[in-house]
Nucleic acid binder design. Sequence first.
DNA 1: TACAATGTTTTAAG
DNA 2: CCTTAAAACATTGT
Length: 269
Amino acid sequence: MPELAEVEFFRKQWGRGLHCKILSVELHGDKKIFRGTDVKALEKGLRGATLQGSEAHGKQLLFRFSKGGWLGVHLGMTGKLRIEPPGAPALKHDHLVLRQSRQSLVFSDPRQFGRILFHCGKDQPAWWANRPAEILSRQFTRKAMELFLTRHARAPIKAVLLLQTGFPGIGNWMADEILWQSKIHPARPAGKLRPAETGKLFAKIQSVSRTALRIVGENDGDLPKSWLFNHRWERGGHCPADGAALRRGQIGGRTTCWCPGCQIPDVGV
DNA sequence: TACAATGTTTTAAG
DNA sequence: CCTTAAAACATTGT
């Protein structure tokens, strides 16, 4: 389930292990989760190391350890981070378990679309460098966003919002929510939005992200009933704004939900 | 049974 | 070289 706010929520789950030493490492080294990663180096690098800090950047997570250990975590579609008691046995999809004296840090991912990376050294790993501007950072400007839309002018706006190089952290439900709140049809070409629409889009990208982080990321609460989110999967779901029957279709390779009343396909020229 | 799932990555085509 | 679309990935649930 992880998009921006859920990723932040999961990052904090491991917070209880901060400043604690890793006594042992248990992992499913042959699983796809570890593709391209030296699991022997990971085990050696983390055993005896202390968890010193963590950060989230879009959907990417980084956990920093003593002894120069950098653990990268991507939760994919079904990844989760949680805390278990010290001796709790690893379940079937618990692919990485870091044992500490007072708790265990667990990464699970049934579908294995997620990924674990590891790097040992003084400098940050290549995979953590050169990241795109975060949505709520000062570098994320309307100008930069419009430049990105121009670069992907012919693709549907829904597909462009899902590109992590432009909108790190936005996923399927956030893209639908942002477009619905902006009253923009998801199939509109990204390059054909009018200035008033890109302005609204820019504002909604930030407000949806900020609100989701506050409600889900900090408190694991429920998003407002007035949002599309709580209605988009209901069968026979209705738009919370105008009561119209919600539409569903395949846009940008993903199931997309929109309101035919609030979001008009295209106005033409 | 068949299809879809809050996501990338690879491959192919324009 | 760049953008876009579609398939692939592994597992579970409806």
